[in-house]
Amino acid sequence: MEINCDIKDLSAIIGVSADILGNPADSKLFENQYKKLLDDGIDRIIMDLSNVKRINSTGLAILITGFNMMTECGGVFALAGMNDFVIGALTITKLNHVFQYYDSVADAISEVKVTN
């Protein structure tokens, strides 16, 4: 799994590349990344999941952690570029009713800007 982080228009875009998002060892990595962004004053995160093939329950927990950390600070945590499998996992768990998600990072950036 690889992650990278770009800052655009005061939003952080975290790009994730993984066959399966949800290796237990990755949880801390993401949590630290979220914390660092909050410390830097950035509370709007867009997760670019366009290079994630599948997601398991640990991966969903990684997303929930980000969502909780950002929203508790009044921020935004949005998902973008998910394939059918990842959307399916959100739909089964009904987490699709919790997360904001968009077809692409560009869509997410413009929406996040408008709503904030």
Partner: peptide
């Protein structure tokens, strides 16, 4: 329980 990142279906 402060484990709100954990969930159960």
């Amino acid at each position: 329980s402060r484990l709100s990142t954990s969930f159960i279906s």
